[in-house]
């Protein structure tokens, strides 16, 4: 379809039809502050921070406004500033002021937007702060839910519903007391949450944060070792150790998404009890050895148990090719058809 031409802040922009003003602006490298929009999710239009002025229509949320031919958009005007400033000031007045010790420091969208808009300390000081502290939900082994930092953008709710299909969280309570929570406002560990962490990576503030998060010094692109899907991951490395794992958006296998194991299951790599060398039993004691000796021992024992004495179960952690080799080995080398796969269980 033909592209749509519109003007954003005086710049001519060509946009794909069926996109929104916000998408068109971001694609053209024009920043419009936004909190509840996420490219993977349907727009909700609830943060009211992405307001822009469209000629002839007045103030509109850019995340919900489809582009139209000849549209003239201003991302900055006294009206726009007034509305989004009030929204951001209200959010800040209801948010802890401990950015430096927050797990999302420097990676927080609210922080970024406050900086973009420019918040006056004195102006903000006029606002009443009446939020009562909410206990932090630490029940999940991998991430914490700190609703004191939640801005109710709903990204977690939509992620769980639209992407994961789990629907573990939704809104509870009304008005000022509204929060996102699992069913019955129980701890998240008691819910049907699968701990995939998709909401955690999308949360724009410190409301959902990984336990013990450390900023990596570099990232390494690799494939998740857990199963045959072969999700692309970006392992964050710091001082020779893996400190984080993120889905690789460029991987066709997972488009940036991960399951609980791929995202949170890499602590075994640096675990002190992990075996890094093979062991063989000598006179009843397990003794470290090299791979040649260990594999030689396995081959030798296998030759003693060919045919009916032998059966193999292959792992879902293996790729299709590896599983093919396993069955070939079982049939051709070990001389039996007793081969199965764990995924049948």
């Amino acid at each position: 379809m033909a592209k749509v031409t519109l003007t954003i802040d005086g710049i001519g922009v060509m946009a794909e039809p069926e996109t929104t003003v916000l998408q068109a602006a971001l694609a053209a490298d024009v920043y419009i502050p936004h909190l509840c929009y996420h490219p993977d999710l349907r727009p909700a239009g609830v943060c009211r921070v992405c307001m822009v002025e469209v000629e002839g229509r007045g103030l509109v949320p850019s995340c919900l406004t489809p582009v139209a031919e000849g549209m003239t958009v201003s991302t900055e005007s006294p009206q726009v500033d007034k509305v989004r400033r009030v929204a951001v000031e209200l959010l800040l007045a209801n948010h802890p002021e401990d950015c430096l010790t927050c797990g999302k420091n420097n990676r927080c969208e609210l922080q970024r937007i406050a900086a973009y808009i420019g918040i006056d300390r004195k102006q903000l000081g006029r606002f009443r702060r009446s939020k009562e502290p909410i206990p932090i939900d630490t029940s999940n082994p991998f991430f914490n839910r700190d609703m004191n930092r939640c801005i109710l953008c709903g990204i977690c709710v939509r992620t769980c519903e639209e992407l994961q299909g789990t629907c573990a969280i939704n809104y509870v309570n009304r008005g000022y007391k509204a929060v996102t929570a699992p069913f019955g406002n129980e701890p998240i560990a008691e819910s049907n949450c699968e701990a995939c962490g998709e909401c955690v990576v999308r949360c724009p503030t410190g409301a959902l944060s990984c336990k013990g998060f450390q900023e990596p010094t570099r990232e390494v692109r690799t494939v998740c070792p857990y199963c045959g899907v072969g999700c692309g991951i970006r392992l964050g490395v710091r001082g020779g150790k893996i400190v984080s794992s993120q889905g690789d958006p460029q991987s066709l296998a997972n488009h940036g998404r991960l399951c609980v194991k791929g995202r949170f299951g890499h602590d075994f790599v640096n675990h002190p009890r992990r075996l890094t060398k093979p062991l063989v039993r000598k006179q009843g004691e397990l003794v470290e050895t090299d791979w040649d000796e260990a594999l030689g021992l396995v081959a030798e024992k296998f030759t003693q148990h060919k045919g009916k004495q032998f059966a193999a179960i292959a792992s879902a952690k293996c790729t299709s090719e590896e599983n093919y080799v396993a069955q070939k080995f079982t049939r051709a080398v070990m001389g039996t058809n007793s081969i199965d796969h764990c995924a049948r269980l």
């Binding site: 909700a44 609830v46 943060c47 921070v49 209200l90 959010l91 809104y171 008005g175 000022y176 509204a178």
Partner: peptide, 11 residues
Amino acid sequence: ESCGECVPCRL
């Protein structure tokens, strides 16, 4: 009675 969804109304 606010549903709590959008920022200006809730807060």
